[in-house]
Nucleic acid binder design. Structure first.
Lengths: 340, 340
DNA sequence: CTGAAAGCGCTTACAG
DNA sequence: CTGAAAGCGCTTACAG
């Protein structure tokens, strides 16, 4: 392999001069710089990442701790990953992707070995067992998802409370009086997916404040269960005129369910989901929905993380907890309820 | 940070002894080993990855070159990624994920800098511009997807030709005489997605051999275009009784299209897709399909790559091109055609 | 069975 | 404006 020594020899300068010429960290005469650049080009020199990391204590790599949980919704995950990798690249960082089911152990190894300069955690649970490890690590961390305790980390999440309110108020203002809310499976909550509660409780409160009936239920995360569940809920609440979905699988299954019941939205039922626009387009989902903005959240997390890594902020600038406000993408699946 | 020197001091031995005790590369007395292990545990020592990589010329990292193309189907991508990361972890490797739109440049940087010991390429095109870079790199590479020229790399792909034949023959044997095949968008082909041709040509041949009419068409990769396209195709070929889908978005859109046309499968139309079982479950797709096995392909690629990296095979063992044979998952969406 | 030392390829004070 | 040298934290021949 070609090393900095080869470049130095070819350019007729010292290795340190090559290093400085490349980093720009001290003034170099135009002539020498040109010779170095030429040698770099001709030899095809790329610095050895391990050597550089060892010398600088900086790897220029960000760790991305994802968990591919069987009962959580995979496609959304890719969008988070995409937001993170894209913005990391823009900032000059590579991504080390871990999907180890043993999150704390993987995180400890990755941070202790100094493979990464910082870490983004996806799928953060209310009481996430990776957080103690992250707080003990020397590198900064950014989370996508809101834990109970946010000390020592930067946190980014959709404002699920506001999302619940927006969903309910949108249908209330159209005149609906009885709604069904289908949430994620109970496993997700048990695992600490507090966002399910956050949306549901806010929706219940908003419904109570407006005098609406809101039937809150859990749904599973795949077929055929979720389809049966939707049928059962529609059977159980025949007078409900609005359906709120905080469950991507339910949204994906709903067109078929409506077909089977000979119903259509918004004629027979107004529907509001909570998922990304990308998801809606790819899966032909014709329902209005709260944009869950996974790519945007991933980008926000990386940008803040990079700011910390590069200490653009004072050493221990206060950590942030930032919520993306929900926006309703209107796809025409809501209308005033049919008079009964 | 705690270094091997700290461990050595705590255990009262030399740094080399610590290294050997940890690697097992030479005999160590039980007593010394115990002292070392204790010190490692108490100090929480993890070797510095950069230093180790520099000393051994091995990073224990595999590069994963994915491309998040806007008109290709995202959810399938996550399954490839999952197969790759999971099997890499099993083999003791971490994953460096690159989604750089400039694939050749990213690949060159990652390999030249010795960040990775080997590379897996996803989304491989017929004439993939990353291949020259990969062949010139000192690390081995494994591909998911079949390029025109396979020299110097290990290649894994679904047997799309056989898939086309299986689809046609399955419907032929049920008595269908006129079929429609919806492929990926033309962009995908122009970009070098030769698998589209491979499946289509084999299907056309099989149809010709059996005396069937097969209307081959392209479809777009998202809504609402793909829905309109399906309607148009069904309008144009009213006598077709079988529908073959080599296009995930089309499969996702079809339930709604059938609903809108008051058709059902297999009563009015027999349908066979080509996608993964995971995809079918998540998106409530009730159609029989050829299993595309993304996770399996990812695993195969990594296993072969690791074998090369670790030279378990003779230095330049012949490179492999391995096809996964298509299996038809029966979800009950095919039947003999309705008599007209 | 163990240790002292060289070397991996960089960066960065230190000197001039 | 440039160079010689130390040092980052490992591994591994070399010696005993």
């Amino acid at each position: 392999m070609v090393t900095i020594g080869d470049v130095a020899r070819a350019a007729g300068v010292s290795r340190s001069t090559v290093s400085y010429a490349l980093s720009g960290k001290r003034a170099i005469s135009d002539e020498v710089r040109a010779r170095v650049e030429r040698a770099v080009r001709e030899l095809g020199y790329t610095p050895n990442a391990g050597a550089r990391a060892l010398a600088t204590s900086q790897s220029k790599v960000i760790g991305l701790l994802a968990q591919f949980l069987p009962d959580e919704f995979a496609p959304a995950m890719l969008q988070y990953i995409q937001g993170v990798t894209d913005s990391a690249r823009d900032a000059g960082y590579d991504i080390l992707l871990s999907s180890d089911p043993n999150g704390p152990q993987a995180l400890k190894r990755i941070t202790d070995s100094r493979m990464v300069d910082g870490v983004v955690l996806l799928n953060v649970a209310e009481d996430d067992d990776r957080l103690p490890v992250l707080r003990a690590a020397p590198q900064p961390g950014a989370l996508v998802g809101l834990p109970a305790d946010c000390t020592g980390v930067d946190v980014f999440d959709l404002d699920f409370e506001e999302a619940g309110r927006v969903m309910v108020e949108h249908l209330a203002s159209l005149g609906h009086r009885e709604l069904i809310l289908v949430s994620q499976p109970e496993h997700v909550i048990e695992r600490g997916g507090a966002y399910v509660w956050r949306l549901q409780n806010a929706a219940l409160e908003a419904a109570a404040a407006r005098g609406l009936a809101l039937h809150a239920a859990f749904g599973s995360s795949g077929q055929p269960e979720i389809g049966r569940r939707l049928h059962a809920l529609l059977d159980a609440h025949p007078d409900a005129t609005g359906l709120l979905l905080n469950n991507e699988a339910a949204a994906a299954a709903l067109p078929t369910v409506l077909h089977e019941r000979h119903l259509s939205a918004p004629g027979d039922l107004s529907v509001v989901g909570r998922y990304s626009d990308e998801f809606a387009r790819t899966f032909s989902l014709p329902f209005s929905s709260i944009e869950s903005a996974p790519d945007r959240l991933g980008r926000m997390a990386v940008r803040q993380l990079v700011r910390r890594i590069e200490k653009q902020e004072p050493e221990s600038a206060p950590h942030v907890v930032r919520f993306v406000s929900p926006e309703l993408a209107d796809r025409g699946s809501t209308a005033p309820p049919r008079r009964t």
